[in-house]
Write a protein that binds this DNA or RNA. Sequence first.
DNA 1: ATAGGGTTAG
Length: 785
Amino acid sequence: MKRAKITVLNRFSISTNQNKAWQRSATATHQFLHCFSSTTSTVSNRIDNVKRAVRSLCVFSSADSAKALKCYKENCVFLLRACSSQGWIHGGRNLHGHLIKMGVSSDRSVAAKILLMYLNFEKYVEVDVMISAFGGFDLVVWNCMISASLEKGRVEKACRLFDEMPERNEFSWTALVAGLMRCGRVDDAAEYFGRNPFRDVVSWTAMIHGYVQNGMYCLALKVFCRMLNRGILPNEVTFTCIVKGCVGLCDFGFGKSVVGLILKCGLENNLSVCNCLITLHLRMGETDLAKRIFDGMKERDVVSWTSILDVYVEMGKLIEARRIFDDMPERNEISWSTMIARYSQVGDAEEALALFKHMLHDGIRPTVSCFSSILSASATLAALELGMCIHSNAIKFGLETDVSVGSTLIDMYCKCGKTEDGRRAFDSILVKNVVSWNSMVFGYNLNGLIDEARELFEKIPSRNTISWNTMIAGLVQSEYCDKVVDIFNEMLLSGEIPNASTFSSVLRACATIASLEKGKNIHGKIIKLGISYEVFMGTALIDMYAKSGDIESSRSVFDRMHEKNEITWTAMIQGLADNGLAMESLILFEEMQRSDVVPTELMFLAVLFACSHCGLVDKGFRQFESMEKIYGIMPRGRHYTCMVDLLARSGRLREAEIFIEAMPFQPEANAWAALLSGCSTYKNEEIAERIAKKLWELGEENSAGYVLLSNIYASAGRWKDVAKIRKSLRDKGLKKMEGCSWIEVRNEVRSFHCEDGQQLLPSGMYGILEVLMSQIADVQCLQTS
DNA sequence: ATAGGGTTAG
């Protein structure tokens, strides 16, 4: 197709004496042109191509040398293929009419292309006409029929046609093998290839390319070796396929041997071979060699330029890449795509959009991937207006029904908070795949619409691991943790294998409900499946064990993890501190400081918490001061609250009060509460009242402070003040934060709230509670006596 | 003669 295109351009440049010709075929060409411009008025390049082509057609009429006839036929073939691939059925019909008028439609080279076009459009009346023009079903017609059936994905029909053929030649076999490969029917293709009596270089290449196409690079390499052993000499097409296979497999050792073979065959100057060698060397990390190949090329085409553009893009040299892009003699949709994708990736959505507009202006039809990359940039930046602009263009090109464009549209709208528009994008997708379903479920989850997510999840025709992970992560995020284990079990029943990402969500849920039994069960499954302690999952395990009170298991997971990030360290340090092992927590923190990990804000929170629970006031202060001085981390409200707690717990109430007063910003309500709590422990009514006054003045909406103060009054027997506080709590509409406890009974978590009546709980549970209460009382008796 | 195999991005 590309060669034909160049011919069209060449013809255009020599078409000077064309007036007479133009008049002669005026009606046909006019109709032809009109047809194209009316159906594709938005795409200027199609019209330009057609205009050029029609002019070339006209030139032929005035200068009918053999050379011109050949050119003319090539132009016809180019146009017929263009009509086929672009789905321009009206253009195709008109062109056919034109060819009849010019008396070339019965030429077999042209007729075959017309036949293929009608087969592609599935216009069987016209197909019959063309077949009778061939004089019935001859070998060429059969081969065309097989090719066309496979193009449409009708594998069974193609095989039937092939099996029914009276005789077959090398074209029949290769058409079938290549077509089966294109349809992903690798085994069938291999079977037919084995039976092929005409195994020439083209058919071997078709096999090699088929394996590469289906990502089976290893097999591609094996077939290539087999071909060499049979003494078949690879040609330039074989080399382009096998080099692509080496790149896919990252087998650069094999790649180097292939380069040697290319030199032996004397194909090192072939254009296509050089083009793929640029990519091979880029992927091998030999960017200098890649550049040298490009520089040494005698002839370069748009693929060469796009390949070298990619070298600079991959090296992260965006400015140089842009310079190459601007200087390129010719750009195609892939060159544009490459640039736009890179600008989108680095978050320069504005430049991506500018290039996108420029591309449209140049009459290049944007590819699906172009839309996807620029839309995902809009999604990341939550740039709704930009996304909508791209969306309108996708509609213009009829690509909003495409599954991958649609999926990125869903993502973009949902990340911008426009869930309904996301749903509309979802509904517009013509043929949905699991990615589009997952995107929509993710979108609902993202915007907290957990019921909608669940409903849609149930409707997914064939779920994959990502579908389950998305749903599970959504439930964890929306804090429906008790439902997570149920859905996880459902996943296991469905036969889907969970991965590290699944486990990290499920463990987070177990940690939240502090369900050690369930957590251990999950850990068992992880071991059974042989999943290694990858960072996120390992950290979730540490957190689950720590939150469930099994700090020994938590630590043992931590010690067995090979790769740790700052979140892992934080989880362990926090876990130790929370479980009363404050000293161990501090020791671990110091161990971490000696390694390369830089402490974070959250880590300091855990450390200060540990200090406060150990009564290590001075150490706490040293850490607090080191935050800003050594690590440049500004302490936040929560850090100050920890410090207040540290002082208050050790009875240094006045110091705590001064510390709060000296804070550079408004303290958290919890800071006052911590101090009040200290006042309560050390029975200091004086400071407590001052703090309470502050709380009143601030109009603080935090109930904990009031409750604490009322407790202080209660313990001092000041019942009038207690009543006053309770009234003010009621007046402000504040409710005492509801306490909640839960236990696990036979693999089921049951939660209690203080207001739960007996009817809400199964009988028998209260009996257990009574036993527990008496055991607690016994322990207390022992301790006091 | 006509019909079969290709390289560049994500």
